[in-house]
């Protein structure tokens, strides 16, 4: 029993550290994004709050916490309040299956450096990713604003469309690792990262991941110059903050998934495993920001064409080919 409580405390500490790091990273990701994007556009980016604007995330947090939280007339109050929480929570939950290092030995017991090693890890990710759609769709619908509604519908349609490509692109990975467990997939990349054998799947996954996280060039649900701010037009204060947090955690989780599924996860020479994972996540995220700084937004029909007419057939063919090659 004592061991149980000791384990519980250890678990809580571990989870709190992970969650804290996740949130801290999300907050600083905002700073990184603004800074990096600014340099891409020959600007400075935030440089007022603290040195190099390093206190900017804190300032933003304080502002969001103290801002008035308005609920528009005629909004569905319950759903309106629920939506941002759904988005933020699903994004954070997704990180639960990402391993950030090999097992560690504490008090003679092995502590795995993963929150939960579900044997259906990937399906868990898909499920939560689908759940996240609810946040967007409900938030858009509940606002009682036309812009929000349009943003919400667009978001829902876009996310379910790319969900398919995302799922199908990972089938070859599952075939290679013979497991849905993310831990197993990392283990399976002991010899070589899967990106080398599955470049097509990587490309499809990368594109779908960006679309899933509603980032430029796939930011149609919030396209500011046509829909004001899309599904979160009517949100302010911390509710807006939760949407924001959700988006950045989502980015990070997707970066982690790319790292784990294609780049060998925490594997790497010299440095401790979590640092390697961190570096890989940052690299993926930086690539996403770079994309944002480079590509213009797609038109909605282009978005749908890309998803349905290119990525899905390609992913299906990739499965067939991979199956044949692996069997052979």
């Amino acid at each position: 029993m004592i061991m149980w409580f000791a384990g519980l405390i250890l678990l809580i500490v571990k989870l709190a550290v992970v969650l804290g790091f996740l949130l801290f990273l999300a907050a600083y990701l905002v700073w990184v994004e603004r800074k990096f994007l600014a340099r891409l556009q020959i600007r400075y980016g935030p440089n007022r709050a603290g040195r190099y604007g390093l206190l900017q995330p804190i300032a933003d947090t304080v502002k969001m916490l103290t801002k008035e939280d308005t609920i528009p007339d005629g909004a569905d109050k319950g759903l309106f309040c629920l939506a941002p929480a759904v988005v933020a929570m699903t994004a954070m939950l997704m990180f639960a299956v990402v391993p950030f290092g090999p097992e560690l030995s504490v008090f003679g017991r092995k502590v795995p450096l993963v929150i939960t090693d579900l044997n259906i890890g990937l399906l868990f990710v898909f499920a939560l990713s689908s759940l996240g759609v609810y946040g967007v769709a409900l938030g858009g619908w509940a606002s009682n604003s036309k812009y929000s509604l349009l943003g919400g519908i667009r978001g829902a349609a876009q996310m379910i469309s790319y969900e398919l490509a995302l799922g199908l692109s990972l089938v070859p990975i599952v075939m290679l690792a013979r497991s849905f467990s993310v831990v197993d997939i990392v283990q399976a990349q002991e010899r070589y990262p899967f990106i080398l054998v599955q470049p097509v799947a990587f490309v499809i996954f990368m594109i779908s991941a960006m679309a899933e996280s509603k980032r430029i060039p796939f930011d149609l649900p919030e396209a500011e110059n046509e829909l004001v701010a899309g599904f979160h037009t009517e949100y302010s204060g911390i509710r807006f903050g939760l949407f924001f947090l959700g988006e950045y955690v989502h980015m990070q989780v997707l970066g982690a998934l790319v790292a784990v599924l294609f780049l060998g996860g925490w594997r790497g020479p010299f440095l401790p495993p979590p640092v390697w994972l961190f570096i890989k996540i940052i690299l993926v995220v930086l690539f996403m920001i770079w994309t944002r700084g480079t590509l213009p937004r797609l038109r909605y029909d282009q978005l749908m064409t890309l998803g349905w007419k290119m990525l899905i057939p390609l992913a299906l063919l990739n499965i067939v080919v991979t199956g044949a090659v692996v069997l052979f």
């Binding site: 061991m3 149980w4 384990g7 519980l8 250890l10 678990l11 809580i12 989870l15 709190a16 969650l19 929570m89 954070m92 939950l93 639960a96 017991r109 092995k110 502590v111 795995p112 993963v114 929150i115 939960t116 090693d117 579900l118 831990v183």
Partner: peptide, 16 residues
């Protein structure tokens, strides 16, 4: 709590 299983996930969800 030592196993990276459903219990850990539950606690994580609670924390969130």
């Amino acid at each position: 709590p030592w196993e990276p299983g459903v219990f850990a996930l539950f606690v994580y969800g609670l924390l969130i």
